[in-house]
Design a protein around this nucleic acid. Structure first.
Lengths: 169, 169
DNA sequence: TTACTCATGTAACAAGTTACATGATTTA
DNA sequence: TAAATCATGTAACTTGTTACATGAGTAA
């Protein structure tokens, strides 16, 4: 069993090709589709755990700096596949901040709600260009994730439009 | 600043009307749209924190059992509204297990992928009736959350259909 | 040579998990 | 009266956060 972060770390290492833990951190910190901060206190211990479980192997780089380059072992690849193909976990609803808050919006007075929905729509529409830029210039793994993030944002916009012009159901 | 769980707890207390912490736990444990387990070790400390911050007030029930019934204070209501109307937080992408795994699916061989997508579709379609039942029989707050969960599942089905008959983009 | 980036970590803290403990009330 | 449910908690653990420490290589 892997945590969501551990699964994402294995995916990043496999995808990036001999990345250092530092590069994994940076990938997380700059990703639009990943929610984690890429904090040292999360990534280094997680890499240590995954190494101890035999999922990651490390080798020194040949350059001057000689950083620890990470790669997946055979069992690491298997663990990643198991994690990614877990049907129950993959289809669970997840922690969606929009959904979690939407219930509360029903008890807002109409004027406040109208203002809020306008602000939400503006924020989402403003975020789409960034997503679309990333979509053009990344590797398949991140591309697919960004594409799904865009779909979520579009679905939110449709929901807002429906709620603005009618009932909240 | 509230955590997602704390926000959801305040929403539940406001929505439920003088619930006990135990009833909040059960609501979380049985909810289709909430990801938390409603564990005692999460809920009781959170209620304690929220009480200490003046967001929750408690009173003894008049019945034999005399349980601690919870209600929101004025500042608790304000804190809930602030949390629910935080535009940046409400529109952030969240931790979606489907999106997190989807990137890895690109490197599966076609046969495996076909099988996986069939299983994912079946699981999602199998879950929809439960969601739809809940939709008929709950209060507005949970109703809206379930409705959004259904939309997420439908969007996933559309994505799978598109990926099955074409390219993954 | 000063500042920035690369690189690896630890410490204190936050907030969730499971598992356990305890007891009152209600139902079969 | 035995079992189930209601009710409130704590303890040990896991895994994330921020903030700090340290040092090597690189660019201005």
């Amino acid at each position: 069993m892997l945590t969501e972060l551990e699964g994402a770390i294995l995916a990043e290492i496999r995808n990036g090709g001999y990345e250092t833990a530092f590069q994994v951190r940076r990938a997380f910190a700059t990703s639009l589709s990943l929610e984690w901060k890429g904090s040292a206190g999360a990534v280094y211990p997680a890499v240590k755990r995954l190494t101890a479980r035999g999922f990651i192997a490390a080798s020194k780089a040949h350059d001057k700096r000689g950083a620890r380059r990470l790669r997946l072992t055979a069992s690491g690849k298997a663990a990643l596949t198991d994690w990614a193909c877990d049907v129950k976990l993959a289809t669970s609803v997840g922690l969606d901040p929009f959904r979690l808050r939407a219930g509360v919006w029903t008890s807002l007075d109409p004027q406040q709600r109208k203002q809020l929905f306008a602000a939400l729509g503006e924020e989402i529409r403003g975020s789409l260009p960034m997503f679309q830029e990333t979509l053009a210039s990344t590797k398949p793994l991140e591309k697919v994730r960004v594409s799904l993030a865009i779909q979520v944002q579009r679905a939110r916009l449709r929901t807002l439009a429906r709620w603005e012009s009618g009932e909240m159901d």
